[in-house]
Simulated assay, not measured.
Amino acid sequence: MPKQADKIIQTLKSKGLRITPQRFAVYSNLLHRSDHPTAEQILKDLNQDAPTLSQATIYLSLQTLRDVGLIREVLLEEGVCRYDANIFPHHHFRCRCCGQIEDISWESFSNLSLNKLRSGLEVDQYEVIVQGKCDRC
């Protein structure tokens, strides 16, 4: 078994998850992507050669991986849930023309001040979503 597969199995086990072929496939797929796919895109990608996974299985696997903190949901546009295996703090840029999404380092907004928020609000997490036009458009 290749090193990458061993690492994925160890990561899933460390979170107390059973290693199923479906869960392994979904997590592996996300680890090798940077495009923040939807569940439908993951399903299409995994079923490209041999359609064996159902939409329900993909959603259940994504929910389980999210619940144990191995992936996160990214909401960059209304009504579209995307998934990201990069669980470290970072922000996102979304091109309004082509829809391309890319990560922005956390440090890019290190001077962001939350001091001007209304009194009584307690921030425990934030994410900046930048939208505009990418250099390819």
Rank of each mutant, 00 (worst) to 15 (best):
M1W: 05
M1G: 10
M1T: 07
Q4P: 00
Q4V: 09
A5K: 11
D6Q: 13
D6Y: 09
K7E: 13
I8D: 02
I8F: 05
I8W: 03
I9C: 03
I9D: 00
I9L: 07
Q10C: 07
Q10W: 07
Q10Y: 08
T11K: 05
L12A: 00
K15F: 02
G16F: 06
G16K: 05
L17T: 02
R18E: 14
R18I: 12
I19N: 10
T20Q: 08
T20S: 15
R23V: 02
R23A: 03
R23E: 03
F24H: 09
F24S: 03
A25F: 01
V26P: 01
V26C: 06
Y27D: 02
S28I: 00
S28K: 10
H32P: 00
S34E: 11
S34W: 07
D35R: 02
H36D: 01
P37L: 05
P37M: 04
A39I: 03
A39H: 04
I42F: 03
L43N: 00
K44C: 04
L46F: 09
L46I: 14
Q48T: 13
Q48E: 15
D49V: 11
D49C: 08
D49F: 12
T52R: 14
T52P: 00
T52D: 08
L53W: 13
Q55T: 06
A56V: 11
T57Q: 15
T57G: 12
I58Y: 02
L60Q: 13
L60W: 08
S61E: 02
L62S: 06
L62F: 06
Q63A: 12
Q63R: 14
T64D: 02
L65W: 01
L65V: 05
R66G: 01
I71E: 00
R72P: 03
R72S: 08
E73L: 10
E73R: 14
V74E: 07
L75D: 11
L76G: 14
E78H: 14
E78K: 15
C81S: 09
R82N: 06
Y83Q: 01
A85M: 06
A85D: 04
N86P: 00
N86M: 08
F88A: 12
H90L: 06
H92E: 09
C95W: 00
C95R: 01
C97V: 11
C97T: 10
G99E: 02
G99I: 02
Q100F: 10
Q100S: 07
D103H: 11
I104Q: 11
W106S: 09
W106R: 11
W106F: 13
E107I: 12
S108A: 15
F109Q: 07
F109M: 09
F109P: 05
S110A: 12
S110C: 10
N111V: 08
N111Y: 08
L112Q: 10
S113R: 12
L114K: 08
N115E: 15
N115D: 15
K116T: 13
K116H: 14
R118T: 14
L121S: 06
E122F: 13
E122R: 15
V123P: 13
V123E: 08
V123R: 09
Q125T: 06
E127S: 11
E127V: 14
V128R: 06
V128W: 08
I129N: 06
V130A: 14
Q131C: 10
G132F: 07
K133I: 15
C134R: 04
C134E: 03
C134F: 05
D135S: 12
